[in-house]
């Protein structure tokens, strides 16, 4: 069974990732308006009503903005853990009865042809998770919005066939940003903030050992990073360790304002 993967948008302006295998189609997060998500899905040839689930990583608005409207309009079940449900009820509005699905962060669950593993991560929200999705011996994962990437997370992501990993900011650029308050900088740099280009590179080195070869960089900051900078920083750090991008490990970019490439893992 092949898995299809496409980042509809990635960044603080809104996150949504489309994954499908067999007859099952899911979204991980829907942090854009319902209209924008629908248009993005249309652009890759998917009807929103054919989605089997929307999985929510955490309750921040750039991850849940369109969840309520999509669920109401197209009768799509929404999956989140209990703490996230409690916190996001205000921001997503009413999710129809019978569309609530509650998972436990420590337990895998199934959505038709897919098996989903929630992975506990560190972020300043109720109970943030990353998701690894399995189908037919293959797997993909979305891991963004985390301050640090622990050994446990590396272990849970080991050997994933395609990984969307956060590469949020360049530490220097963030430190010199005049428009950000000191407390905001501390928040982003802290353990419950976001992953920097450098931390991303470090994580990738460990992940490469476990067999991860295809990585998409995601959730780039608009003010404190650029796609070129992130790509350069990560590939330089990797080549310092003797890993050649393009042959040992493949890096690609996801975008704040448009869909990424459409990946098929067979």
């Amino acid at each position: 069974m092949k898995i299809e993967f496409c980042s509809l948008s990635s960044g603080s302006g809104g996150n949504a990732t489309y994954i499908s295998a067999g007859n099952t189609r899911i979204l991980i997060d829907a942090g854009l308006s319902g209209k924008t998500v629908t248009a993005a899905l249309n652009s890759i040839g998917v009807l929103p009503e054919s989605l089997n689930a929307i999985l929510v990583t955490h309750e921040h608005i750039d991850h849940v903005k369109g969840v309520g409207i999509l669920s109401r309009k197209y009768h799509i079940p929404v999956y989140a853990n209990e703490n996230t449900w409690n916190r996001m009820s205000k921001s997503v509005g009413e999710v129809p009865l019978g569309m609530h699905r509650i998972f436990e962060t420590d337990n895998d669950f199934y959505i038709d042809d897919l098996s989903v593993m929630p992975i506990a991560i560190q972020h300043d929200s109720a109970e943030p998770v990353a998701f690894r999705v399995f189908a037919g011996g293959r797997s993909v994962a979305v891991a963004t919005d985390m301050g640090v990437i622990s050994k446990r997370v590396i272990q849970q992501l080991s050997g994933v066939d395609l990984l969307l990993l956060e590469s949020n900011h360049d530490i220097e650029m963030l430190r010199q940003n005049q428009r950000y308050s000191e407390s905001l900088k501390r928040r982003i740099l802290g353990n419950k903030g976001h992953l920097s280009n450098d931390s991303c590179s470090l994580a990738l080195m460990s992940l490469y050992e476990t067999g991860v070869k295809h990585v998409l960089l995601g959730h780039l900051s608009e003010d404190n990073n650029t796609p070129e900078l992130a790509m350069h920083a990560v590939s330089t750090a990797l080549s310092d360790q003797g890993l050649k991008t393009g042959s040992d490990i493949f890096l690609e970019m996801t975008w704040r304002d448009r869909t990424s490439g459409f990946y098929t893992i067979e």
Binding site: P77, P96, L97, G98, H100, R101, I102, F103, F109
Partner: peptide
């Protein structure tokens, strides 16, 4: 009809 409330999985 709107079936069920919260579904634990």
């Amino acid at each position: 009809q709107k079936k069920g409330a919260n579904v634990w999985i």
